[in-house]
Amino acid sequence: MEIAVTENSGVTILTPMNERLDAHNSDTLKGAMKESFEAGAKNVLVDLSNVRFIDSSGLGALVSGFKNSVSHRGRLTLSGLQEQVRSMFELTRLHRVFEIYEGLDEALASFAEGDVHG
């Protein structure tokens, strides 16, 4: 799976380019989040706006990224959840674990303000 990596005001933005995030490709995202935190990034945003479908492996990869953020004293936020993706977060109650923003701008603004909730 292709993941676009960009920087914006000290935030590393990871954007999966595929419509599906499943057991076939979720390890790529898991690796990209791990590499970012290990390379010293403190603020990582995963922009899910291209992802129309997520399964339990995709959710598991994001949980792994969340754990990396905690162990590196960093911060991981998500944005751009489409309908199916949002419903999977709610079904598995993971919406209570992650910091989720409607769009990229809101997520970036939260980093600028240094917001941490959860």
């Binding site: 399964d55 339990s56 492996s57 598991g60 792994s64 754990k67 999977m88 209570r96």
Partner: peptide, 16 residues
């Protein structure tokens, strides 16, 4: 059921 506090990586497939 998945444990939301512990946020495990695996074990949500059959729950879904």
């Amino acid at each position: 059921e998945p444990d939301d506090e512990g946020a495990r990586e695996h074990g949500r497939g059959l729950f879904i």
